[in-house]
Design a binder for these strands. Sequence first.
DNA 1: CGGTTTGCTGAAAACGTTTTCAGACATTTA
DNA 2: TAAATGTCTGAAAACGTTTTCAGCAAACCG
Lengths: 376, 376
Amino acid sequence: MMAETRSKPSKGSKRASTRTGAPKATIKDIARAAGVSVATVSRVLNTPDLVVAKKRQAVLRALRRHDYIPNQTARSMISRRSRAIGLILPTLANPVFVPAIAAIEQELDRAGYALLINCCERDPARELAQARTLIERGMDGLLITGSEHLPDLPALLARHRIPHVSQDVSQDIALDKPMGPSIGLDNAGALAAAVDHLHACGHRRIAVLSGPVHNTPSVRDRFLSAIARIRHHGLICPDAWCAVSDDYDNHSTRIAAQRLLDCGEQPTAVALTGDLLALGLISECRARSLDIPRDLSIIGCGDTNMGQYADPPLTTIHMPFVEMGRAAARDLLSLIEDRKPPELSILPHELVIRQSVAAPANAHSAKTGRLRTNRL
Amino acid sequence: MMAETRSKPSKGSKRASTRTGAPKATIKDIARAAGVSVATVSRVLNTPDLVVAKKRQAVLRALRRHDYIPNQTARSMISRRSRAIGLILPTLANPVFVPAIAAIEQELDRAGYALLINCCERDPARELAQARTLIERGMDGLLITGSEHLPDLPALLARHRIPHVSQDVSQDIALDKPMGPSIGLDNAGALAAAVDHLHACGHRRIAVLSGPVHNTPSVRDRFLSAIARIRHHGLICPDAWCAVSDDYDNHSTRIAAQRLLDCGEQPTAVALTGDLLALGLISECRARSLDIPRDLSIIGCGDTNMGQYADPPLTTIHMPFVEMGRAAARDLLSLIEDRKPPELSILPHELVIRQSVAAPANAHSAKTGRLRTNRL
DNA sequence: CGGTTTGCTGAAAACGTTTTCAGACATTTA
DNA sequence: TAAATGTCTGAAAACGTTTTCAGCAAACCG
């Protein structure tokens, strides 16, 4: 009674015009309209069985009539869970992450979670600030992408005990300074596999063409691993055969390819750190009337489905970005629900054989390329 | 005094273990630690000038010590703004939208807004559900992408008076059933411009190669507009010259290209509805020893920066996806702040001349292709 | 028929903030 | 010196829910 007189008079005048002028029906309005208490309306919404049929009908009618939309913010307030997770990306300029995002979105949507996206533009300080903002916003968990973080980031995450999973993290970094569960792609292994494939096809003069290694640990891993693997096979790998392009477009790639092809001895095969580079390299070969794969074999490393657009279609190492996103999302949800996901999963890459690799034309190359027989 | 005895005893026992066991310092904890009221802490956070220096220092110290992160949910609760907006996409499988997302994210981040992303997988019913969820979550505004919506969607948006902007909407649809401010790309105009460019270069035998028109209004617009424009110039355009590929990969595109090139009379130029198609078409031409642009000119329509990877680099119509995202985000923010953005903006496309278009080899074709001189 | 159980309901507290209001001083003005 | 003004502060209300608790009937049990 007392309480009622206190709350009643405030009703009429309070709903003045907010900025949008939207009155937005609340649970109280529904309760009043249906002649029940707010508790009952809440019960109809969440545990309908606890409400006697007659009142339930009345409430449902009122809900429909006002077409009531519950306020998730208020719910989060009391449940202390937002059912939302935050994703921090290095950049969207590199479309590599898109399939992973799609998988994450799908996985979260299925579980009723929302996805907030932030790009830090490869700025670790910005990344940290965004993580902080996402924590402010009450995310139930965070998905961190890439390998370059400020040391404050793991500290922040730990202090606030926010569930988080890293994805696309370099293997050695993950082991070095672990930051919670991580999903990694075996970038090094992928290029080792690429080199192995070329080697198995008989190539002994193998070059490497890389995208810009600056600021992209995964590309750097691929590049260095390719070189290491070539040497591991006891093959020569002069500097001139380790080309780095400034960018992925046709022009930049061709310049790098020229450096590679213009040096005295020509390789019989090239391992690429990214599929996109194939297009430029193929252009350059065509300009020199070099047939692929007859005169030069090319193997990519699959960020994308780009390889299938090339001519000839590109033999490549498929990297499981979609699976990575899915795994990251699932592991994070597990973490949120107190199940412990694996600390570090490295997802398997896969050799996709198309038509850009063949045996070298002359067995001769196998000899000249050999440096020593028993190395490593 | 009374109030104090009421609130004190509840303190100790209440912070039992939540799921995460995270105690999370609240403004009350800070107030207690600094020996002031919560109001004062709040003032230090929001209007520091109102607090006398000594207490302010104490509060700041406490804030740092607990490394307090304010609860944005509680703030939203009382301010009734989330400082977040929701983006609904048709799909992420088509990377066309990615540059727009990047621009949106950037624009929102700058304004201190968060971005929630939902993909409806081209399912209008799902889109509607996602819009509802985003409203539940208290988004300050919604960004809707694409042209295919359930009629319930505009109704929902209107009923709840939620600021929203549509992007990538077909022009005629936008005018037909407007759904608030819209940012459109002039897909029809783009292909008209493409055809005009070919025509201006002397081509009179112009064919069209399109990506799948099913489920993609923008592609359909481009396709139909190209045909209409060809006829507008008084040129013939037999069905065999209007090819539709099932997909964008090399194989599918080549099959469609074959249909086009195998019919009796060969075109001297092809307008594409998407840059990606160029790669397959170029492959097919190469297989037939058709030189581009000598034997066949090709013009794309630019979803992406794909054209620069082609050989020869593709002359294309650039579509301003980045600008679209930026404009959509800005207009939405304007709307949220009660400024009225334009109802419908169509962003200008732009001809990008690279190397895939030249004058037709023989003036002969100009004659045979002409149907009537004065049409339209 | 008295007591227990059961089923359903509403009042009120709680979530973590911001904001309003009035009170406590300190300072200025008349 | 009294009054008026100004500066700073804390209590409490409010935001829209969920959940706890106690109360009230009705049904059941002996």
